[in-house]
């Protein structure tokens, strides 16, 4: 267990020292929301209506943007190979890295959502629901992302391909995440999102570890 924590700690430490990558991601997240009114007009009721969807799109894009760093650095300096001999199985290594990645990418976005709520004139209730939906959905997004990052780890052009692979697979998360805020949907969407997020988060370390093993061969 201490090895698991040590790996999360190292990834967080590296992220902080590498010059605020998390901040850049937050900046991108906010910027996506900022350009939307320029594209569709500053009509407040319309913005309010579209806000949850806009926040989800911004979160989606930001998460995809940060994907490439998940395994690439560790692959390039050999850490990934050496981690194969660690006291932890590779699946646990992947899980630790996914948790660290969620803390570095998804959590800052959640903290930045009040800014978006203000810009897009969301109500507090709407904001609360959006944060709850993102809280449930982002672990699944990061987990799909880990899979995409793992299958493209040895590729120089992987940075572009991983998002293209992951996006269609993540559509259900988007659907139920935004659906949670639909008054017609009821609690069904919330339950589906929770179930989906649990299954994807539990399953993806195994698939990603398998992909990493194959990539190392």
């Amino acid at each position: 267990m201490s090895a698991f924590r040590a790996l999360i700690g190292r990834d967080l430490k590296l992220a902080f020292r590498a010059g605020g990558e998390a901040l850049t991601l937050v900046l991108f997240f906010v910027m996506v929301a900022v350009i939307v009114p320029f594209a569709i007009g500053p009509d407040r009721p319309q913005l309010t209506r579209l806000a949850p969807g806009i926040v989800w799109i911004a979160a989606f894009l930001s998460m995809l943007l940060g994907l490439d760093r998940l395994f690439r650095n560790d692959d390039e300096d050999g850490s990934l190979t050496l981690l194969r001999h660690a006291g932890l199985p590779l699946e646990a290594v992947v899980a630790a890295k996914v948790i660290a990645h969620w803390l570095m990418t998804a959590l800052p976005l959640l903290l930045a959502t009040p800014v978006l709520a203000l810009l897009l004139s969301m109500s507090w209730a709407q904001w609360g629901q959006t944060v709850l939906a993102l809280l449930i959905g982002t672990p699944a997004l990061v987990s799909f992302g880990a899979l995409g990052a793992a299958v493209t780890v040895g590729l120089r052009r992987g940075g572009l391909i991983a998002p293209v692979l992951i996006l269609p697979l993540s559509i259900p998360i988007m659907i139920f995440g935004v659906g949670m805020m639909d008054p017609l949907a009821g609690s069904g969407a919330t339950l589906f999102l929770i179930a989906l997020s649990l299954v994807v988060t539990a399953f993806s370390p195994f698939a990603a570890a398998l992909a990493l093993r194959v990539a190392g061969e």
């Binding site: 259900p172 659907i175 659906g179 949907a185 969407a189």
Partner: peptide, 13 residues
Amino acid sequence: PVIKFSVDWWNTL
């Protein structure tokens, strides 16, 4: 199948 289910759900919504 999950995508199909979610899209159908979204569609009926």
